[in-house]
Simulated assay, not measured.
Amino acid sequence: MSDTADLIKLYSTRILALAADIPHLGRLEDPQATVKKRSPLCGSTVTVDLDMVDGKVTRFAQDVKACALGQAAAAILGQSVLGRTTAELERAAAQLAAMLKSDGDTPDAPFEGFEILLPARDFKNRHASVLLAIQAAAEAARHAET
């Protein structure tokens, strides 16, 4: 497949639609935890604010300055993050990394929407951007619990 065809496949209509409609976009006032992650390769950044009550995410916001893949990943996270535990977020982050880097399975529900990003496997230079939001959320959840 040509490089152009690969890029067209990578930036599918569905990925671009997700990137255009990111849930919980913005910042929280006075969050329990804030984590900012940056991809050194492309410069994408995601800042996550969240609160947890009884071990579950109750408030969440994200400031996303990333490529369409990073934005799509943030959208998928935003659709499922409320009510999740730290363990669920950490598991989803690990599963997404394995899906991209070592042909692992799609993350478990409720994060199975990350399957749309399977074409990014072939673009190692995009992996960090795809992982930013879920990694930031998992880290923020750990901080909120301590």
Rank of each mutant, 00 (worst) to 15 (best):
L69S: 04
E90G: 07
A61F: 11
V48D: 06
Q95K: 05
A19S: 13
F60E: 00
A61R: 04
F60P: 00
Q79E: 15
T85N: 07
K65Q: 14
L25W: 05
A74E: 05
K36I: 07
F60R: 00
P31H: 10
E88H: 04
R59V: 01
Q62S: 12
L10S: 08
T86S: 12
D21I: 11
I22V: 15
C67S: 06
A74R: 01
S44Q: 03
Q62R: 04
D49I: 03
A66C: 04
I22C: 11
A19E: 10
A17W: 09
A72T: 03
V35K: 03
T34I: 10
P31Q: 09
I76G: 01
A93S: 14
G70N: 03
V53P: 00
A72M: 07
T45S: 10
K9N: 14
F60D: 00
V53H: 12
T13G: 02
S39C: 15
C67V: 05
G43Y: 12
L28K: 05
A61K: 02
A72N: 06
P40D: 12
V57L: 08
V81W: 11
V64W: 09
Q32E: 14
S44N: 06
M52A: 12
A20Q: 13
L82E: 15
A19Y: 09
Q95W: 06
R84G: 03
D51A: 11
G26P: 00
A74W: 05
A33C: 07
G43A: 11
A92I: 02
D54C: 01
R84K: 12
V46Q: 03
T85R: 12
A87R: 03
S12P: 01
G83M: 08
A20I: 04
L82G: 07
P40M: 14
R27V: 10
L41I: 14
L18C: 07
L69M: 09
T34W: 01
C42I: 09
Q62F: 08
I76Y: 08
I15D: 02
A73N: 01
P31N: 08
S12E: 13
T85M: 10
M52H: 02
D21Q: 13
G78I: 02
R91D: 15
T85G: 02
L25A: 15
I15Q: 07
G83I: 04
A20M: 05
S80D: 09
L16V: 12
A33V: 05
L96T: 06
R84P: 00
R38D: 09
R59K: 14
K56H: 14
G55K: 08
P40C: 11
G70P: 00
A98G: 08
A61S: 13
D54N: 13
C42Q: 06
T13W: 08
A75R: 03
G70M: 11
L82N: 09
E29G: 01
L18S: 04
L77Q: 04
I76A: 08
R38Y: 07
T85W: 14
S12N: 10
D30Q: 13
E29N: 06
